Computed example of a mutant assay.
Amino acid sequence: MGSGLDLGLDAAALTAALVDIPSVSREEKPLADLVESALRAIPHLRVDRDGDAVVARTELGRAERVILAGHLDTVPIADNLPSRLDDGGLLWGCGTSDMKAGVAVQLKLAADLAAPNRDLTYVFYDAEEIAAEFNGLGRLVAHHPEWLAGDFAVLLEPTGGRVDGGCQGTLRVRVQTSGRRAHSARSWLGDNAIHKAAPILARLAAYRPRRVEIDGLVYPEGLNAVMIEGGHAGNVIPDTCAVTVNYRFSPDQSEAQALARVEEIFDGFEVVLTDSAPGALPGLSHPAAAAFVAAIGTPPAAKESWTDVARFSALGVPAVNYGPGDPTLAHTREENVAVAAVLDAERKLRAWLTT
């Protein structure tokens, strides 16, 4: 593919070029270098870099600033590189859907739109696919929040070409029990902590999750056991047990409110918070968001997972998810994206930003 990124390619061909540059999480530097170099060659952009995150922006003095953001990293390669284009117009390979197609769209717009109708900030960041402590967007929030200032943001995660508003929040807790250890041959001398977990599971089974409507979008919640730990040996009455519970909560609740709800559900048990991330409101009442939904032309839906739109929401920037690719194919060996979907996403974004 030569010594650099050719931003003259169409968005689908540029997607293939990006896919053929491996960028597994924490190994994004070669791709980040190419992205930075390509963007610095564009005269209408100011370019900054922090680690393996690259931020480019127009400075035209427009009344509104829109942020287009996407991550450069992928999950580990699963024998699905280099990319290949089949006769049906599907581009196959690691990162095609999640989310180098979205990144290619960002790069095409960055190269072509010298005079958009809104000022634009393009954010390309690292380490989204691994633990939050490494997330490049989180690092930018901490180190350079001024680079992320804006009125509205679009995260180009794969959404099947629809607008997914906001995102769920998520937290995990360990609901713990304790007992008395003993030899299982003399079980009456012990107090079985695993047996004490039965009411925890019963409360989970009886729980009826809320379905919360915000801006016309319905966010279904979920409260589920995702792990259970306990026991020492096949002949020992266990004295500890913990059920790890994941609560996916609607963005109408703060993290503190979500934790309080979980603590209420498991009243009488020890509840220990292990991790938490806030949700994001859809922000579809914002004029820029309404114009964006109209430009895309399909009914919006609620994002039924957590995404980095929450980081923008925490900064006071309304944000939505929108990008080419099927999110159910993300992280699979069969990951692919339709060429037509990539070109359609670029066309719709271009029209929104120039009309």
Score class of each variant (00 low, 15 high):
residue 115 A to M: 07
residue 78 A to I: 00
residue 81 L to N: 01
residue 89 G to F: 09
residue 88 G to M: 03
residue 116 P to W: 07
residue 87 D to V: 08
residue 105 V to Q: 10
residue 119 D to Q: 13
residue 77 I to M: 02
residue 116 P to S: 07
residue 125 Y to V: 09
residue 108 K to G: 08
residue 116 P to G: 07
residue 119 D to S: 13
residue 119 D to V: 11
residue 75 V to Y: 01
residue 96 T to S: 14
residue 99 M to K: 10
residue 119 D to L: 13
residue 115 A to V: 09
residue 121 T to F: 04
residue 117 N to K: 14
residue 114 A to L: 05
residue 107 L to D: 13
residue 82 P to M: 08
residue 80 N to F: 01
residue 82 P to D: 04
residue 79 D to P: 00
residue 77 I to N: 00
residue 78 A to Q: 13
residue 76 P to T: 04
residue 96 T to Q: 02
residue 108 K to W: 05
residue 88 G to E: 14
residue 117 N to D: 08
residue 108 K to Y: 04
residue 90 L to F: 14
residue 107 L to I: 13
residue 102 G to C: 13
residue 77 I to L: 10
residue 100 K to H: 05
residue 116 P to C: 08
residue 83 S to L: 03
residue 123 V to L: 12
residue 99 M to P: 03
residue 102 G to Q: 11
residue 99 M to G: 06
residue 110 A to D: 07
residue 90 L to G: 02
residue 76 P to W: 03
residue 105 V to E: 10
residue 77 I to T: 14
residue 122 Y to I: 09
residue 84 R to T: 07
residue 74 T to M: 02
residue 107 L to S: 12
residue 106 Q to G: 06
residue 82 P to C: 06
residue 127 A to F: 01
residue 107 L to V: 13
residue 106 Q to M: 15
residue 110 A to M: 09
residue 95 G to C: 06
residue 97 S to M: 04
residue 79 D to F: 00
residue 109 L to E: 09
residue 109 L to D: 10
residue 110 A to N: 07
residue 124 F to A: 05
residue 74 T to Y: 01
residue 74 T to D: 02
residue 116 P to R: 09
residue 98 D to I: 03
residue 87 D to N: 09
residue 115 A to N: 13
residue 106 Q to S: 11
residue 101 A to Y: 10
residue 120 L to V: 14
residue 108 K to I: 14
residue 85 L to G: 03
residue 118 R to P: 00
residue 83 S to I: 03
residue 122 Y to K: 11
residue 82 P to G: 06
residue 101 A to K: 10
residue 82 P to K: 10
residue 92 W to Q: 02
residue 112 D to W: 12
residue 113 L to M: 13
residue 87 D to K: 12
residue 93 G to P: 04
residue 110 A to S: 09
residue 106 Q to D: 11
residue 119 D to I: 13
residue 106 Q to H: 12
residue 123 V to T: 13
residue 78 A to M: 08
residue 115 A to K: 14
residue 120 L to A: 13
residue 126 D to G: 07
residue 120 L to N: 13
residue 77 I to W: 01
residue 104 A to I: 11
residue 79 D to V: 00
residue 79 D to Q: 06
residue 121 T to G: 05
residue 118 R to Q: 12
residue 85 L to H: 06
residue 118 R to H: 15
residue 124 F to D: 05
residue 84 R to K: 09
residue 88 G to H: 10
residue 123 V to M: 12
residue 86 D to P: 02
residue 77 I to Y: 01
residue 100 K to R: 15
residue 109 L to V: 11
residue 77 I to V: 15
residue 91 L to M: 07
residue 89 G to A: 11
residue 99 M to R: 07
residue 90 L to T: 04
residue 116 P to L: 08
residue 74 T to C: 01
residue 110 A to K: 10
residue 99 M to W: 06
residue 94 C to R: 15
residue 89 G to E: 10
residue 87 D to Y: 00
residue 114 A to S: 15
residue 79 D to A: 08
residue 95 G to F: 05
residue 91 L to Y: 04
residue 92 W to L: 05
residue 102 G to A: 11
residue 96 T to R: 02
residue 80 N to I: 00
residue 111 A to M: 05
residue 125 Y to P: 04
residue 96 T to V: 08
residue 114 A to Q: 13
residue 115 A to D: 14
residue 107 L to F: 12
residue 110 A to T: 10
residue 125 Y to T: 09
residue 86 D to L: 03
residue 108 K to P: 01
residue 111 A to R: 15
residue 101 A to S: 15
residue 99 M to Q: 15
residue 93 G to A: 08
residue 127 A to P: 00
residue 82 P to I: 07
residue 90 L to Y: 14
residue 91 L to V: 05
residue 98 D to P: 02
residue 76 P to A: 03
residue 105 V to G: 11
residue 120 L to G: 10
